[in-house]
Lab assay of single mutants.
Amino acid sequence: MGFKLLSKLLVYLTASIMAIASPLAFSVDSSGEYPTVSEIPVGEVRLYQIADGVWSHIATQSFDGAVYPSNGLIVRDGDELLLIDTAWGAKNTAALLAEIEKQIGLPVTRAVSTHFHDDRVGGVDVLRAAGVATYASPSTRRLAEVEGNEIPTHSLEGLSSSGDAVRFGPVELFYPGAAHSTDNLIVYVPSASVLYGGCAIYELSRTSAGNVADADLAEWPTSIERIQQHYPEAQFVIPGHGLPGGLDLLKHTTNVVKAHTNRSVVE
């Protein structure tokens, strides 16, 4: 069995187990497998329904001669939608809004960016022009300005110390501490036991640490421990890039980060 097929099978099995364990909360999309990078042309966006009122959005972007996937989250909030992270750029984010209108038909009224990198804030200006209120932590807003990236308009308070959590509509926002970046936030959907790890969490097929220019490698494993301790009931975990899975993604990420750190020390 090929690795790609095995990865998709694991996603399907995880979703099936969740649907059985929580039949009222989960209505997993039966329309197909989780979209992969090879299936999404740059400039297009796919939506994948995880649970009743919960979707991931998947886009792709060219970077350094390669094409990478990027995940975000959409959560229903009454007759409105909360968006977590842009679709990595203005063109993708405009396509995301169009796809949401086509498939869901509810307005996106608020959006949260989970850290300051372009795959999370690139497209904020498109959201703002569409009347979406954009939010991020003060740290993310400051770092985005320093980096020359787009800056969300509103500040999220109460997320300055490791372990801080605040309720934001249908989700809980959690600051686990520094990891992929010093400002990275985690998003949890309690009604569906869905954990969105953003770039602080890796997919299972990833074996290298990737972009760690703004990471705190020493603190990252401790931050992941905080996530595990705060959300032990999480059933569906979405990484910032690639295929979702279960809580095993947290341990896998820790292993990859520690291996990278150990290699760096040896070198």
Rank of each mutant, 00 (worst) to 15 (best):
H115N: 00
G65T: 05
E80Y: 04
L9G: 09
Q235E: 05
D125W: 05
A25Q: 11
F174A: 04
V166P: 05
N184S: 10
L10V: 09
N71R: 12
G197Q: 00
L127N: 00
D64C: 15
I201Y: 00
E233D: 06
S22H: 14
P107F: 02
D214K: 10
Y231C: 09
H117I: 00
G163S: 05
H230Y: 02
E219R: 08
A209W: 10
V212P: 13
L6R: 05
T207C: 05
D118N: 02
G242C: 02
T222C: 08
K4C: 11
P23M: 00
I50D: 04
R263M: 04
V189G: 02
S62N: 15
S162I: 05
D248M: 03
V237L: 04
S162H: 15
P244Q: 07
L73S: 09
A144S: 12
A192N: 14
A218K: 15
L250Y: 09
E233H: 11
S137H: 03
I20S: 07
L127I: 06
Q235F: 02
Q61F: 11
P244V: 12
Y48S: 06
N71A: 14
T261Y: 03
Y34A: 13
N184M: 01
G131F: 15
V112L: 14
V75M: 04
R120S: 09
G78E: 07
E145D: 07
A25V: 06
L73W: 00
V124S: 08
V171M: 15
S16H: 01
G169T: 05
K91N: 14
H154L: 09
F116R: 11
S30N: 14
L143T: 12
T93A: 07
E219N: 02
L195S: 00
Q228F: 02
I100K: 02
E233N: 05
M18F: 03
P176V: 03
D52M: 14
N92R: 10
V266L: 06
G78M: 06
A133V: 06
A259W: 07
A259R: 05
S223M: 04
A259T: 11
A94D: 12
T222M: 04
V126E: 07
V42I: 06
I58M: 15
S62E: 13
V37D: 08
D214S: 13
A90M: 05
H230C: 13
R142H: 04
K91R: 10
A178Y: 11
